[in-house]
Simulated assay, not measured.
Amino acid sequence: MKPYPVLFLAAALTACGGSSPEKQAADADSSYFSDRALQHTDDVTAYISNIDAQGPKVFYTLTAHDYAGTGSGPSGVVGLFSMTRRPIRVYIYPEGQATAKSVETWYYLDSLNSHVMLLREIVREKDSVRENSFYYQGLQLVNAETRAAADLSLLERASFAPYPRPTDTTSDYRLQPAVVNERAEKAIMAVKADRPDLSPAANEVRALGATHWASGNEPGWSLAVMPPTKIQFTTNYGEEKIEFPYAEAQKGDKDATEFTTTKGGRTLHVKFENKRCTDDAGIKHPMTVTVTLDGKALHGCGRPLF
């Protein structure tokens, strides 16, 4: 995404002769803000490009489903957080049945103060795709632009134009930085909230960025996959905890998800199979899990946490 600066009226007005001193002063102010908007846009673009490039390799994710905060049907939310648990990016996408118009929204936040720096959205309709971008500095909107194409494959080659502002800016929340920040915060709270379908132990590791959870009773053990740093295995009813380096998931037989990692001469292999599992308490889980530590297999139930 290579944004173009919003073009202010100053450029056109300076081409007209006979401007009054007051008009020239106003034009100078407009030129100054245009330059500042351009610089800020470039800075933000570099910042978000770095975030998108690193993604889950450096940050951890939290997700929520059936989110009702958009006012346009149930949505999914994916939050990206720094290792110090600061929100970095929030992505909101439509869930459920496809509709004639759908909107995907990204909020990119300042890692220091958690203010939204960029709101980007992709609006898909039957015969067109539109991208709108809104740049903020603190609680001030400094740039807004849009581009459109027949489909997503052509959108990257389309040029940006100034976003058309309505006469009444209160009708468009994207032009109100305070409202934008409120919406982002509401989505962040949704992904950080405990899930009612998870145990307290599973919610605890989920809040720390775990993507997979499993537990069993041979004796009592649990496992949490926590990218990008570790896979945590706890056994003997919590008395023994071993932290292995994180390893990327591998695809196994019948679409199973597998992890293999080593530490200090010990090997841990984990297999999440897409087979329903009922634990000793009668609770049903979507996955059957086998944990093999140094050749000894343990069996239990588990689930993804995203």
Rank of each mutant, 00 (worst) to 15 (best):
Y4L: 14
P5N: 10
F8P: 00
L9D: 13
A10H: 04
L13T: 08
S20V: 05
A26R: 00
Y32G: 03
S34D: 14
A37Y: 02
A37L: 03
D43M: 12
T45G: 01
I51P: 01
K57I: 02
Y60C: 04
T61R: 06
L62C: 05
T63C: 08
Y67L: 08
G69K: 01
V77T: 07
R85C: 02
I88S: 09
R89N: 07
G96C: 11
S102I: 06
V103D: 03
E104C: 04
D110G: 08
L112W: 05
H115S: 09
H115C: 03
R120W: 04
F134H: 03
S153V: 07
E156L: 04
A161W: 02
P162H: 05
P166R: 06
Y173D: 06
R174I: 13
L175M: 11
A184W: 00
E185R: 12
I188A: 05
V191L: 06
K192D: 09
P196R: 05
N203Y: 01
L208Q: 15
T211R: 00
S215C: 05
G220I: 05
E240H: 06
K241W: 04
D255C: 07
T257A: 07
T262Y: 06
K263M: 10
K271M: 10
N274W: 04
K275E: 15
R276D: 07
G282H: 03
I283N: 13
P286C: 12
T290V: 14
V291T: 01
